[in-house]
């Protein structure tokens, strides 16, 4: 009778999954933006200490990472178990610091050189001897901004 005939077989309509890729892409972009890929594979074991008075490192491109710690197990037969420093992706000594800093300076804008910051990622079990040596060398090289990398800790002490 009526012109608009009811369709037969009125089951649940299938949920359209056409927008699924869009949702996933949105998530994907979020994670792509917040991701910081670790640029160095660690050769030394580093567990940074905990602290409360923390500052954030603002600009990633101006940070020089220095890792101090015990060589990982697979390197121990070659490098021993004493504390070693890692600059870039290789074991280094204090004498490699000038070149390391100079290379970093070449790669950054000259106007930004005063804002370069050395981030020292030091294992908490390391003794201060080698840390002091590095600090002294940094002072001699005029790289005075240093950041002792630490994890946040609750207020309890």
């Amino acid at each position: 009778m009526s012109k608009f005939k009811q369709k037969r077989g009125k089951g649940m309509p299938a949920v359209s999954t056409a927008s699924l890729p869009d949702i996933i892409f949105m998530l994907l972009f979020f994670f792509m933006v917040v991701t910081t890929l670790r640029d160095n594979t660690l050769l030394v074991g580093v567990q940074v200490p905990e602290a409360t008075e923390l500052n954030k490192l603002e600009e990633k491109s101006l940070v020089m990472y220095m890792y101090l710690g015990k060589p990982l197990e697979q390197y121990q037969n070659l490098y021993g178990t004493a504390t070693r420093m890692q600059l870039g992706d290789k074991f280094s000594t204090i004498d490699d610091l000038p070149l390391f800093i100079e290379r970093k300076k070449l790669k950054t804008d000259e106007r930004k050189h005063p804002f370069l910051i050395a981030s020292m990622k030091v294992d908490k079990k390391v003794t201060m001897g080698i840390v002091s040596d590095v600090k002294t060398k940094l002072r001699k090289l005029g790289q005075l901004s240093v950041n002792y990398s630490s994890r946040a800790r609750g207020q309890d002490l």
Binding site: T36, L54, K56, L57, M120, L138, L144, V146
Partner: peptide, 15 residues
């Protein structure tokens, strides 16, 4: 591969 926690630490100015 994401590490959301930013790099933090105690900032010092060496003499």
């Amino acid at each position: 591969t994401t590490q959301i926690d930013a790099d933090k630490g105690i900032k010092v100015k060496l003499p």
